[in-house]
Amino acid sequence: MNGELTTIAIILGIIHQGIRLATPYLFAALGETFSQRSGVLNLGVEGIMLMGAFFSFYVASETGNLWLALLAAIIIGVLMGLFMAVVSITFQAEQGISGIGLYLFGLGMSSLLFKTMIGSVTGITGFSELQFCVTDSFCLADIPVLGEIFFSHSILTYGAFLLVPISVWLLKRTTWGLKVRSVGQNPEAADSVGVSVNRARYAAVILGSALAGIAGASLSISLLNVFQENMINGIGFIAVALVYFGGWSPVGVMFGALLFSTISALQLWGQVLGLNISSNISVMLPYILTIVALAIPFRRAAQPAALTKPFSRGEN
């Protein structure tokens, strides 16, 4: 079957889709990496993504300006992050739980706002796939193999992957990154040398949440171009899991996101090609393989020592 589809075309298709599908996971998981590196587990990513998806979609459908829409997603991400930070850092709340609270708040609010402000599912024109045309007749996307894989994605997909080296640089090469890592590893020591633990954590959580907002937007105004209640459907939680998977390093997170998305693409292709597997089993595949991949002892996770541990000077 599928006589015209060569094996190469299928492999290219899987890689191309793996890259595209990784976009929301990558934004959210990289943001979560900052947050966790500073010692704060933000389980509310899903809720922030929903709010980001809604606000960017709303602004896009009202103004037609996608950049403004993206900005709206960032702003709401920052606000949600601030909320999370106040609860989890200043009020030292149990982080796993405050995250669930934030998720429910985001889920409820985004659905409520959708009902009152939009009312029914509609489509918009979102970020389209770039072609990188050098001349009128020649586009980078036309290059065989490479063009298809690398040069026909939406700008947000490139942004997501560009964020990987930026994150590495931020965490490893800047003073700010050093502060973030130190407050996540040993807040008492960082405090004793004059680093403001809570300020560094606020910054990391808010940055992470802004990225989660973009992750939501990448779905509603780039990949799907619709908004629907509860449309994130667990991507945010998987993004949190990917941070553990990636061993708290941006590059590891990227590989985790790619692995997960590629296996998802693989199972979709498995179904389309009519392989004789029950759809339920193929849907399970990404989850099973992720667990298996985790159990392979190739790398020991370097969990930030103070993760989920609130800091208060002199009291602990």
Binding site: L5, R20, N230, S264, A265, L268, V272, V283
Partner: peptide
């Protein structure tokens, strides 16, 4: 005529449904 069928395994997985549609498009 070739019928390509894929199931996402849930009713609300909007993102995976989109990717399934993309897969169908790439499969022609």
């Amino acid at each position: 005529i070739q019928m390509n069928i894929s199931f996402t395994g849930s009713f609300g997985d909007t993102a995976l449904a989109a990717e399934a549609a993309n897969t169908h498009l790439q499969a022609g």
